[in-house]
Computed example of a mutant assay.
Amino acid sequence: MCITFFHTNTPNYGNKKVSQSSALSVIVVFIFISQVVTAPMSTINAIAVEAYKKYVLVSLIQHGQFSTSLPKYTSSAAQRNLKNFCMPYVELATSYGSGKIAELEACVQTNREKFESDKNLGLVKQVVSSMYKRNIQRLTQTYLTLSLQDIANTVQLNGPKEAEMHVLQMIQDGEIYATINQKDGMVRFLEDPEQYKTCEIIERIDFSIQRIMALSKKLTTMDELVSCDPSYLAKAGRERQRFDFDDFDTVPQKFNL
């Protein structure tokens, strides 16, 4: 029952593309998953294992990197054992860190059945896609113009057509600023043209701020409810005995703006 609850209530972004417009939702999900992974526990449980798998994948999608080191206030059971239950995901993160798409795709193929059975293949595909995007974004920091063929060769795509598809999608999502001359197959990388002075931009910023405030309020309410739960307090008390109080000085008690 607990596992079903976890799967059905985690936002279903494993089956849809995470675009710039849903970046805030991804961050909130990442915070939620982080809390599940670092919650007090005396033994490893299925929910924590499933959360850790998604923690690895969302870290790669959102941040482009993953560290097996968990915060020091994480339970010793989680610190010692979680990654041992999720080795295909740790291997995926290691392959991602190499920056080589061929190595990453080989890892995906090796562990494909595991990812499918975990119902995480959609997220894994997003991890692969995010590497292509990050490799293209790195090119914008080095070149002003580049041919689609050169992009395909550098990023290890199948050809200029596939490179064009990726670049166009990234332009559409606002992830890069560029123009494509289809006649000669050249891409010109541009600076962000937005001056952030229009009424529309101000309204969008205000909407984002209001949404963040609403989410922060929800997180604060959840934090307060959990903080008053007798079972949580009992477990947290047992875990805290393993640390000095100084270890918790930097741990935020609430999410405040």
Rank of each mutant, 00 (worst) to 15 (best):
L123V: 13
L219W: 07
S147W: 01
P160H: 06
M41T: 08
L190A: 00
E91T: 13
I31F: 12
C107V: 10
Y52G: 08
I180H: 02
S59T: 05
N15D: 15
Q126A: 08
S34H: 11
N256S: 15
C86R: 03
F66H: 04
G64D: 05
H7W: 05
S69Q: 15
A214G: 09
Q253R: 14
G14F: 12
I171E: 00
S216H: 02
I33A: 02
F66W: 00
K53C: 02
L24K: 11
S42R: 05
P11F: 05
L219C: 03
Y73R: 14
F32L: 13
G185K: 00
Q182K: 01
V49Q: 03
Y232R: 15
F30R: 15
L146S: 09
Q149C: 02
Q210E: 13
S117D: 06
V128F: 00
G14E: 03
R240N: 12
P160A: 04
A214T: 14
F6C: 03
P88R: 10
N256I: 07
Q182R: 03
R188P: 07
Q20T: 15
D223G: 09
T43Y: 02
I61Q: 09
V36P: 12
I171P: 01
G14R: 15
G97F: 02
A78Y: 10
G237P: 05
A178M: 04
G185S: 00
E103Q: 12
Q253G: 12
M222F: 10
I136R: 00
K217G: 00
F248E: 07
Q253V: 11
I201D: 14
P252G: 01
Q172I: 08
N135S: 07
Q182D: 04
L148C: 00
I202A: 13
F255I: 13
L144H: 09
Q210I: 05
Q109S: 10
Y196L: 07
S95G: 06
L104D: 02
D184T: 13
V124C: 09
E194Q: 10
Y73A: 00
H166F: 05
G185F: 01
A106P: 04
T110Y: 11
T4A: 13
S130I: 05
N120H: 15
R112K: 14
M131V: 10
E164L: 08
S98T: 15
D247R: 11
L121A: 04
E194T: 04
G97M: 02
K17M: 04
E91S: 07
F245P: 01
A51L: 06
L146F: 04
K100R: 04
L233Q: 12
F248T: 07
F32R: 15
T68W: 04
E239Y: 09
S19V: 11
H63K: 02
R112T: 06
L233F: 12
A214L: 14
H7T: 10
S98P: 13
R112S: 08
V56E: 06
G64F: 01
H166Q: 09
E200R: 11
Y13P: 07
L57T: 09
K218R: 06
Q169L: 02
N153G: 01
Q62I: 04
V127I: 05
N15K: 11
I151F: 02
R238Q: 14
C228D: 14
L92C: 15
D184G: 05
T220Y: 04
N15Q: 13
V28S: 13
T198R: 09
S75H: 11
V56L: 04
K119C: 04
I61L: 06
